[in-house]
Simulated assay, not measured.
Amino acid sequence: MGQRYEYKQASNCAGVLAIVGMIAGVSSIVPALEEPHYLDLISAHESQVIVGAVAQFVMIPAYVGFALYLYPALKMENEVLSLGFLGFRLIAATFHFIGVILLPLFLVLGQEFAQAGASSASHLEALGELLRTARDLVNHVALILSLGVGDLLLFGILYRSRLVPGWLSVWGLLGIGLAMSASFLVLSRMTDVVAPLYLSINAPLALQSLVLAIWLITRGFDTKTLTAGHQHDGPRG
Rank of each mutant, 00 (worst) to 15 (best):
M1E: 13
T227S: 07
Q3S: 05
A206I: 13
E35Y: 07
G150E: 14
P31V: 09
S27F: 08
Q208R: 07
L131C: 02
G150V: 11
P196H: 12
G128R: 11
Y159T: 00
H230N: 11
A18V: 02
V141C: 13
L158R: 07
G175V: 14
S169C: 00
M180K: 06
S82Q: 03
H140E: 13
G84L: 07
G25K: 08
T191F: 03
Y7C: 02
F57A: 15
G172P: 05
P72K: 12
L105N: 10
F113D: 04
A73T: 06
M22D: 03
P72N: 08
A92D: 04
A182S: 09
G234W: 02
R4V: 03
G175W: 09
R236F: 01
F97G: 08
Y198I: 11
I217L: 12
G21Y: 05
V108Q: 15
E77G: 01
A62N: 04
F155C: 10
L83Y: 02
L163K: 14
E6M: 10
L90A: 11
L197E: 07
R162V: 04
L178K: 06
S28Y: 08
P36L: 07
Q115L: 13
A114S: 14
A93R: 03
A44I: 02
V58G: 05
S120P: 01
Q48S: 04
L168K: 09
A118M: 10
A44M: 04
I217S: 07
M76V: 00
M76Q: 13
L145D: 14
L137H: 12
F221L: 07
G21E: 06
F155N: 05
W171T: 12
W167F: 10
A114D: 06
D40W: 03
N202V: 03
E79A: 03
E125T: 10
R236T: 02
Y63W: 07
A44V: 09
I157V: 10
I214F: 14
S120D: 14
L199K: 11
S28I: 06
V186R: 05
I91V: 15
G128I: 06
V170G: 07
L102I: 15
S181P: 01
A53Q: 12
V186F: 06
H230Y: 00
F184T: 09
L212R: 02
R4M: 14
